[in-house]
Each structure stands twice: as C-alpha cells, then as structure tokens.
C-alpha cells in the first residue's frame, strides 16, 4: 500500500460512522426512552403498599361516664308505712314491703296492711295470712295496685327506708333485692310488693296514713335504679387489662437515658375493641439533652404498640369506661 493502490475500494469511508450504527443509535435511544417511559407510566412500577387511609374523625358525644342520677320523670316510689311483726313466709320475697324506718321493738301481729288491700281482690283481707297469699296474690294483685297506690301513698315518715330494714328481722335480706329489680324493669310505676306485705305484719301507723298522700313523694325515696349503668368494673382492672395487651408490642428505644422518657397517650376505642382514630400523644416527660433524639421514637413506638395491640379485649359491659383511654403511660416499667 505504500504506493497507494489504485484499485483500493476506498470509496467507503473507513473511519466514519457506518450507517448501520446510525440506525442502531436511533433504535437504542428509542428503546431506552420506551423502557423509562414504561417504568414511569405503566403499572409495571410496583405498589409497595397502599398509602395509609385518611383518618376518619368521629366526634364522640360522650366522653364522660353516663349519668348516674335517677330519672327525673320516674315516678316516685310511694312511701310505705313501717310494717310491724313478722311476715309468715320469710322465704317469700314479694310480700314484704317492710320499709320500717323506726326500729320495731317487737313483733306485733297487727293487721295493718289491710288498707292497702282495698283495691286488690278480696281474698287477701281474710285473716289467715299464710294460705291465701301464695295462691291469689301472684296474679291479681300486681295489676290493680299500680293504679291505686301511687297516689294514696305518700307518708312523710320513711326518709331512709333501705337502711333501716336490716333491723327488723331476717326478712330484709331477701326483700331489698326484689324491689330494685321489679322497679327497674317496670319503670317504677308498679308496686306489687306493698300489697303482698299486708298480711305479713302490722304497722304502728294508722291505716289511714298507710295509704299515703297522693301526689306527694318524699325526696330520696325514688326507688328507680339510677341510669342503665352496668356494674362498674374497677378502673384498675381495665388498666391492667390494657397494659397486659399492650406489653407484648411495646419496647422502649435503646439509648442513653431513654428509660427516663415517659410518653402519655390517649386514644379512643370502638365497642369491638378496635381503635377509633389514631392514638394521640398527650404529653412527654423526662426528656433530657441526652435522650432528646429518642423522644420522638419513643412516642412513635408507643403509638405503634397501641396500634398493634388493637383490637383490645375488654369487658363489653364496661364500654363506657374504656371507650376513651385518656392517659396511658408508656415508660420503662411497662416494657418489663
């Protein structure tokens, strides 16, 4: 080639950019653009996890416990005259209307109850107490009395009936319970007991007074059981139940002085024990310079523990008590 060969087919550029590579460059750029576009736009991009849903805020009407006061419109329990003497059947819960505020010295077989009996069927007035009661009373009495009694009875005497009862005799033990039950159920309008009590014992008070004064009620004598509140579960039991369920999920962050941090959370619960909304940090204490960085993590872990512990298993009857956990402490003790 020293002389430069004449027949050398150098019409094709040797160092140039071959047309095949130009095509290749265009195709390659297009392909890369397509790949990027596919990754960017198409569903090929994975959805690692659905974004957290917005918290739904429900305004709870009641944060406090339910009112425990008696119903203002409940009909007052008519005052009863103290019954003297022993009822024949101590085992009969109904018959004994013995709200005797005055300590009765002895058993006086005085047939006082009669006046009350008037509205009721006749069988009662009959002297032989033991036999007539069991049979006739259960059916007839309950109905007639509700109408007649509420008005007649309103003697001012018995201010504190429930307590004095124990004094008279063994009966009181049985009596108080049935009353509360019956009244709560019936709304306080019916008073089956007094009637039945008639035969049981006598009263010091004249039978005229025993009827009671119509329309007058003695304050504090309302026997309606207050509210619908169920038997209260001790708060301590609820707290320990909650902490027992949170414990497995709670671990304090590691670090200097982190055991000094105390995070107080509050959260609301649904009746089924699930969280109503997110737990909220009420306060944090024990933050020092050394553990400042850990404080947020502490709160974060506490919130996470609550969320993981939900749904809580708590006595449903006491929902009113645990519907809002106002302040729950997360500290080093809880994680032990």
């Amino acid at each position: 080639m020293l002389t430069g060969s004449p027949s050398d087919p150098d019409s094709i550029p040797r160092r140039g950019f071959a047309p095949e590579y130009a095509i290749g460059l265009i195709v390659a750029i297009a392909a890369h653009g397509a790949v990027i576009a596919a990754l960017t736009l198409s569903p090929l991009g994975r959805h690692p996890e659905p974004p957290p849903q917005r918290m739904t805020v429900s305004f709870a009407a009641v944060l406090a416990d339910q009112s425990a006061s008696s119903k203002p419109d409940a009909q007052a329990a008519p005052d009863l005259a103290p019954t003297l003497g022993e009822p024949d059947h101590a085992d009969q819960p109904q018959p004994v209307p013995v709200p005797v505020p005055v300590p009765v010295p002895a058993h006086l077989p005085v047939p006082v109850p009669k006046p009350v009996v008037k509205p009721a069927p006749k069988p009662k007035p009959v002297v032989p107490k033991p036999e007539p009661k069991p049979v006739p009373k259960p059916e007839p009495k309950p109905q007639p009395k509700p109408q007649a009694k509420p008005e007649p009875k309103a003697p001012p005497k018995p201010v504190a009936k429930p307590q004095p009862k124990p004094a008279p005799a063994a009966k009181p033990v049985d009596k108080p319970k049935p009353r509360i039950d019956a009244k709560t159920a019936a709304g306080g309008d019916s008073r089956p007991h007094p009637d039945k009590a008639k035969p049981a014992g006598g009263s010091k008070i004249d039978s005229n007074f025993l009827k009671g004064i119509s329309g007058v009620t003695t304050p504090g004598t309302d026997k309606v059981s207050p509210g619908d509140k169920p038997a209260a579960v001790p708060v301590a039991a609820l707290v320990s139940a909650i902490s027992r369920q949170i414990k497995p999920h709670w671990s304090a962050p590691q670090g200097v002085d982190t055991d000094k941090i105390v995070t107080v959370l509050s959260w609301s619960l649904n009746p089924d024990g699930t969280l109503a909304g997110l737990p909220v940090v009420v306060s944090q204490t024990g933050i020092t310079d050394a553990n400042r960085a850990q404080a947020q993590i502490h709160a974060e872990l506490a919130i996470r523990a609550v969320r993981q512990a939900a749904p809580f298993t708590l006595p449903p009857a006491a929902y009113a008590q645990w519907r809002k956990v106002t302040a729950f402490r997360f500290d080093r003790k809880l994680s032990q």
Partner: peptide
C-alpha cells in the same frame, strides 16, 4: 447503555 445498544444493533445489522 445507549451506546452499548447502539453497537449491538449496528453490529448485528452490519
């Protein structure tokens, strides 16, 4: 990467 693919395509064709 673009250049690599350009070479791959161009070389194959050529």
């Amino acid at each position: 990467s673009v250049w690599v693919w350009m070479i791959v395509i161009g070389f194959t064709v050529r």
